[in-house]
Design a binder for these strands. Structure first.
Lengths: 149, 149
DNA sequence: CCAATTCCAAGTGCATTACTCGGTATTACC
DNA sequence: GGTAATACCGAGTAATGCACTTGGAATTGG
């Protein structure tokens, strides 16, 4: 029941992007350095994030990425699902194209998996990047430079 | 963010055991046949369940397993944690011995992981085996023999 | 033109999962 | 007392997925 690095790195990277959103596009290299994540690996994550319309890219020299929407309109759930796929704990309760199980008693345990799925989605969809920015400012209330250390 | 077969099989097997609880001890072989799970693999799961005091065993011929408590007093959470370990989505928010992260911004994303962890625990600890038995009877309200098909 | 960047597809090493296998210990039943 | 059925135990293994790496091609500011 663990999130993979995709989800974890993705949220960190998106928060990094959100905190530097005012500076225009941000290169993967700078995010990778600040967050200590492999730049090549980040590429893959941002490919998914771009396909999910969560970030916009600017190609070429001095290029980079920007949030595709206001931090208040980007939920953690949308980031996680873009990178991890469905957050359903079992394939038979995935939102789209659920795996069929032949056993009748599956339907009983399904009851549990659905409740887990729903509670996870409810939590992650109720938190936005803006919430994390606020939380960040509250926690590290000195100045923005804290972020680089 | 998927449960492993340990958790899934474990809940199925415990529900099977609960439904046959009145018949005295139940052999792994019969559970394995009904639930179509490898008997050898089930052995490993029941070793964990026994250590967690969720089942009692009777050795020897005609031996088997019984629930160690009333179905109403066995939560799905206790089963899942016995088999999967902590249900925390990230190691840094495990209930016991959380992994330390050096980065200060980790504390912000931690905020998210904690909320996910808490909501999962809340759901699985609120459902007992008795709830599943009732759900089972409601779903398959013909007779118990349905279970074997 | 060149360096910096995004973009893309494929390959790889490692760890974990989901088992299997072989054997021992215990006990009901004949 | 023998035997079959069961729980118990530890090690081994094949397959899978994860977490990257590699080697490029395309794009663009300076």
């Amino acid at each position: 029941m663990k999130l993979s690095t995709k989800g974890r790195y993705g949220v960190k990277a998106m928060l990094d992007l959100a905190l530097h959103n005012s500076e225009g596009q941000v290169s993967l290299k700078s995010i990778a350095e600040r967050q200590e994540i492999s730049e090549n690996y980040l590429e893959q994550l941002f490919a998914s994030l771009r396909k999910a319309n969560l970030v916009k890219s600017i190609r070429g020299s001095q290029g980079g990425y920007m949030l595709a929407a206001e931090p208040a309109n980007i939920t953690i759930g949308s980031i996680l699902r873009a990178l991890e796929g469905s957050l359903a704990p079992v394939d038979c309760v995935m939102e789209t194209d659920p795996a069929k199980c032949k056993r009748s008693d599956c339907c009983v345990t399904k009851f549990v998996w659905q409740k887990i799925r729903d509670s996870i989605n409810e939590v992650v969809d109720s938190i936005t990047l803006e919430d994390l920015i606020n939380e960040y400012k509250k926690t590290n209330n000195k100045d923005e430079l804290m972020f680089y250390i």
